[in-house]
Design a protein around this nucleic acid. Structure first.
Length: 421
DNA sequence: TCTGGGGTCCTAGGGCGA
DNA sequence: TCTGTCGCCCTAGGACCC
């Protein structure tokens, strides 16, 4: 059996833990740059504020309905997440951290326990120790555990936040209840396609023949179908090293100026280089993309990406910026209004296992140079050392107008309690 | 005025060597 | 030596997740 433990309205719950005055009030948390709604409390959901709603379009609703709006506070959410995950690790030998707010627990060999009671214990301990409410779904496969969790969340009163699918009858009942677009792994495109074939529920999906599912939805769809039927096909995953690192941003305004885009791409490449050095890796390929705003439909659209293989693997900011600019020159076309760009680095090797190239290699001085630069940048966060091709006047900071304190990770932000004696 | 960012996996189709 | 086929690798693009 597998358990899926999922935190309820995670970002909103984190904000509430240290600010109980928010209990019962609608809360939304915005994405980077305060762009879209990425998390909502139940009260905000009840106000029909959709996931992904652009914040500027809902400004009036927020004011009118007294919605508490927060910028993403990743320091807080990351720390709260690791507290929850560390509790979970004491309940199963194999825990797969699936995302910041959910984990799968492999409960094979735990059949001698009363699994429902076990799940209630997990739920209660997490709430007691962190203040975060979770729901637990337990089933013979991961996709069914996801579904069980959905049932637990939807019928919280009846299930007390815990639901077990442990019989064919319960499985069929849940599958018939679950709309096709709500199935884990069925996205917008696939649900549209399935609906066009009159497949409306998870149950109807499992009734389609294998060859049909394989043909329409590739091997991924077929694995999902089997998993939903109770045949384990999506297995626990171990922590794998990263295959790519990216830095991508939407611009504050559109720009057709090459120099502006070049500066942005250089800064993104520099950021990737820093992330690479942090995890002690080098990369040997770099991908750069640029595109116009898909929302400005009246304007000419363009999006293009290019991958460049480098002659040696490197994590030097100077090298990565050089190759990123080289890539940009190949895809940039004058006359378009660009809105977004990004740099993705690929093909990693361990920093210490770099393959030497016969003709060209990384300048050995760069290693020492960037070691020092990283050290200084960690120490003096406000006076960042940069390359000259980056905008030196700009302290690149995303819009975060409604950021809550980093209660658990910054000494100056720790809550102070007044004692009246 | 203002619509996120960071990932993974899979497939089709072309190039290429055995 | 020529040609066809198979399978591997690579890339771009699309789908999915949170």
């Amino acid at each position: 059996m597998y358990a899926l433990v999922d935190c309820n309205n995670f970002y909103a719950s984190c904000e509430r833990v240290f600010n109980p005055a928010l209990n019962g009030k609608p809360i939304v948390v915005l994405s980077n740059n305060d762009g879209c709604v990425v998390a909502r409390s139940q009260e905000a959901k009840d106000l029909d504020i959709p996931m992904g709603a652009p914040a500027f379009k809902f400004k009036e609703v927020f004011e009118k309905k007294k919605v508490h709006v927060f910028s993403s506070n990743y320091a807080l959410y990351g720390d709260m997440s690791s507290r929850v995950m560390s509790i979970l690790s004491s309940y199963a030998a194999d825990v797969e951290i699936y995302s910041i707010d959910e984990s799968f627990l492999d409960l094979q060999g735990y059949d001698y326990l009363d699994l429902e009671a076990y799940a209630i214990e997990i739920k209660n301990k997490i709430f007691k120790w962190t203040g975060i409410a979770v729901c637990v779904g337990i089933a013979p496969t991961k996709a069914l555990a996801k579904l069980a969790n959905r049932v637990a969340k939807k019928f919280k009163e009846r299930t007390q936040g815990v639901y077990l699918i442990d019989s064919d009858i319960k499985r069929d009942k849940a599958l018939r209840w679950c709309q096709i677009e709500d199935v884990w792994g069925i996205g917008r495109q696939n649900s549209k396609k399935l609906r066009s074939y009159d497949v409306k529920t998870a149950y109807e999906f499992t009734q389609k023949p294998d060859y049909w599912v394989r043909k329409e939805m590739t091997i991924v769809g077929l694995r999902l179908k089997h998993d939903l039927m109770g045949i384990p096909s999506i297995l626990m995953e171990e922590v794998k090293p990263k295959k790519s690192i990216s830095t991508t941003r939407t611009f504050e305004e559109t720009s057709s100026d090459f120099e502006y885009v070049r500066e942005r791409v250089s800064t993104f490449a520099a950021s990737c280089a820093e992330k690479l050095r942090k995890q002690k890796s080098s990369c040997s390929a770099i991908m750069v993309f640029i595109h116009t705003s898909p929302f400005q439909k009246d304007k000419a659209q363009y999006h293009k990406s290019i991958t460049i293989k480098m002659p040696y693997s490197t994590n030097s900011t100077i090298d990565l910026v050089k190759y990123a600019q080289m890539a940009l020159r190949q895809i940039y076309i004058k006359g378009y209004d660009y809105k977004k760009a990004g740099v993705i680095v690929l093909d990693f090797v361990n920093e210490t296992e770099k393959q030497l190239s016969f003709f060209t290699s990384e300048n050995p001085k760069h290693t020492a140079l960037f070691k020092t630069m990283d050290k200084l940048n960690r120490k003096y966060k406000n006076g960042k050392l940069k390359l000259a091709c980056q905008d030196l006047g700009r302290t690149w900071k995303m819009k975060q107008e409604r950021l809550s304190p980093a209660y658990t990770t910054k000494l100056s932000d720790i809550i102070k309690i007044k004692c009246n004696d």
